[in-house]
Design a protein around this nucleic acid. Structure first.
Lengths: 325, 325
DNA sequence: ATCAAAAATGAAAACGTTGTTATATTATGT
DNA sequence: ACATAATATAACAACGTTTTCATTTTTGAT
């Protein structure tokens, strides 16, 4: 059987309500007594009973994370970081990999205090009266009825081009997914094109390479194809971590050197960029900062109960490594 | 404020203890009353209060999963499946990506009912009197004081060779990690060598290729190197999902065809094998079955309280796809 | 020394369940 | 019709906290 505050009370010769206050560092109890009680608690290895605390506080101190799409390295890194971040707070995290609606159902049953949703193209009907919800996704036209944290993809791509331009590149290509149904990709595309225009660089067919997908293989095949064409760019912007992996391989296979022959900068700012065949210079919101922002916002929403459906656009950062010249 | 059994009691005109029994389908309450109460509960959207149930039942119905190594596709798939599986039960899962000892600490505080540990080379000192613990890892010499679920790596590799042998291959190479400090890899190595000997196939330097790592790139570089050597094998056993990805690439680059020129079978049995450049024939315990076994065992240990430190060796299965001939 | 105010502690209700025990109701056999 | 057994329902303690309110103790001013 576990140690309770009543056990502590008995040893300390005080009432258990005093113990409760002492352990919560209440100003209502004398500091000598407080110290004595805390010492005893530690001594006999007291751990507060979670269920009892929840019952009276009407909170679960649990945040649910809905993660319907699996197995993209970037996302699993983000999940890890979010978990880390939540563990630093009094909250903890439970994970659901079920489809969105089913997950919401589960979390309601669980009475979690808040829900973080990884949104990919999903538009969720959320009853605003219910559990606080925060989405990591893309801002909509008409704002949803819950807050959204969104990496500024457009700005990221703009900065990528700006950086390459500053390095005197004039023939810059974008290898990425141009799917018009994925808002994230649309943003990236826009940002690239806008920057190119702003710097008076040509935007033509040969420097807009559609991978039709976000995976390694998509980047690889697209690169092979486009390297065989004339008017080869001197710099490439890769649309995702995985795509860029494929790009590197494609370039290597053509016996070209990075960055001597071609510079490359990739979207997605995760530590793994460092460990690629060539450490990739990358642009994007650092995954750590993203995690912190998501968790902080979630907790704020939970605790302040005032969830305006704001959109938080996170600013991308450039991390220079060895792939641009 | 949430609906409680007292609200139901008021509406139904019975005492709340009767409601409790009715909702738990107790034989102590008349079936008419039961139905009526259940109907009302549904009607007004009653959800039992988790904390209250936990407080009285002395259980949390939460299973903690410790996952210290991240970002190996195979493992994240397994985590997903385990989560799925747990969600089918009355339990739910919380995830910790902290180092083992810190995670154990957290989970104790949480009073989780059981802990699943993904063990990679970690030897954990566990106080057997405490929370039930189940490890997914490798059997030790002296059994640990908790149960271990272990894929039979040795048998897997044996079966791989057997399969290739049945396809009339005589020159078979193993491309994998031969690190003597990683017990999983040692098992695989052993299984391969044993099979080769049993089938009277030669085990020489040219068909034991050490990648010194488990990643894509390790497989790729190893393959490039060994393809340049004479006496090229007709079939390859790849040591992991990622390694095999690299092997495929290496072979393709050498302008060889799979399976026409070289057959390849990979360790790890996950659905993603289907989506590789070439759908890979693979051997290993199917990740779904692994997840089911882990979760079932965990729950059994929790509920029966009799955790003998057994080792469960899971039988690998062969999934034939397009990469062997 | 006396008393009021302030400080410290204690008592007890509340949170929403489950499970045990007590009570009321119905059925059964004579 | 009556005792007895079986059945259905109600009452209430218990789980381990937090929090409110009541009580006791200490402090400080007179």
């Amino acid at each position: 059987m576990n140690v309770t505050i009543k056990d502590i009370a008995k040893i300390a010769g005080v009432s258990y309500s005093t113990v409760s206050k002492a352990l919560n560092n209440s100003p209502l109890v004398k500091s000598d007594t407080k110290e004595r009680i805390v010492a005893i608690a530690k001594e006999i290895g007291y751990e507060p009973n979670f269920a009892a605390q929840r019952l009276v506080s009407k909170q679960t101190k649990i945040i649910g994370l809905i993660w319907p799409t699996i197995e993209r390295v970037v996302l699993s890194t983000l999940v890890t970081k979010i978990s880390d971040e939540i563990n630093k707070t009094p909250y903890s995290m439970i994970l659901s990999v079920d489809p969105v609606q089913a997950s919401l159902e589960t979390f309601r049953r669980f009475q979690v205090d808040g829900i973080i949703l990884f949104e990919e193209n999903v538009d969720v009907a959320v009853d605003p009266s219910s559990t606080p919800l925060l989405s990591y996704g893309v801002a909509r036209k008409g704002p949803a009825n819950y807050p959204i944290i969104d990496a500024n993809h457009e700005q990221a791509m703009y900065e990528a081009v700006k950086y390459l331009y500053a390095l005197n590149h004039a023939n810059i290509a974008y290898i990425g997914d141009f799917s018009p149904t994925d808002p994230m990709q649309v943003q990236k595309y826009k940002g690239f094109v806008k920057a190119m225009k702003d710097f008076n660089l040509p935007v033509e067919e040969h420097n807009l390479i559609n991978t039709s997908g976000l995976d390694w293989y998509d980047g690889y095949t697209a690169t092979r194809k486009f390297l065989s064409l004339p008017n080869r760019p001197t710099a490439i912007v890769g649309g995702s971590y995985d795509i860029s992996g494929g790009i590197i391989r494609g370039i290597k296979e053509a016996n070209l050197d990075i960055p001597k022959d071609i510079s490359i900068i990739s979207y997605d700012n995760i530590p793994q960029m460092e460990n690629m065949e060539i450490p990739l210079t990358s642009i994007g919101v650092p995954v750590d900062k993203l995690a912190i922002e998501i968790v902080q916002s979630m907790i704020k929403i939970i605790e302040e109960k005032e969830s305006q459906p704001v959109v938080i656009k996170m600013t991308p950062e450039l991390t220079v490594r060895a792939s641009c010249k």
